[in-house]
Design a protein around this nucleic acid. Structure first.
Length: 116
DNA sequence: AACCTGACGGACA
DNA sequence: CTGTCCGCCAGGT
């Protein structure tokens, strides 16, 4: 019915990823694994898949999502390209500190509520 | 339905 | 620290 027309392109899972990603506070970053955990997914790759070609950019601050190792990961479907440098700059603009040109400082990681 | 890929993560050599 | 392998889940072909 009419409702079927809207969804397409974006699955229920992706909407959850974008929603959680938009919850990341400015000046902080979250790893794909942490995000996946918040979504009760258990797979960071599944989360990365959703962000890979995010149709909600820049509505969704996908640049605040980095790898668990502190690496920038990717941006706009590119890994370690100039896009990564842009991503790094965006984070620095928001107040995120970097341990290296391609690594985020560990204290800049955000943590979702675990419900304790 | 089956197979392969992917902006990951962790373990191992 | 670097390179390789396996496991994880979802999506596209």
């Amino acid at each position: 019915m009419d409702a079927d027309l809207d969804r397409k392109s974006v699955t229920d899972f992706q909407q959850r990823v974008y929603a959680q990603t938009s919850l990341i506070p400015k000046g902080k970053v979250v790893s794909y694994g942490e995000l996946a955990r918040a979504l009760d997914c258990g797979s960071a790759q599944a989360v990365g898949q959703a962000l890979r070609r995010n149709p909600f950019a820049p509505e969704v601050p996908c640049h605040r999502v980095v790898s668990a190792s502190g690496d920038l990961g990717g941006f706009y479907g590119e890994r370690g390209g100039e896009a990564a440098e842009k991503k790094r700059q965006l984070l620095e603009e928001e107040g995120v500190t970097f341990a290296s040109d391609t690594q985020v400082n560990s204290h800049s990681f955000h943590q979702f509520s675990k419900g304790l």
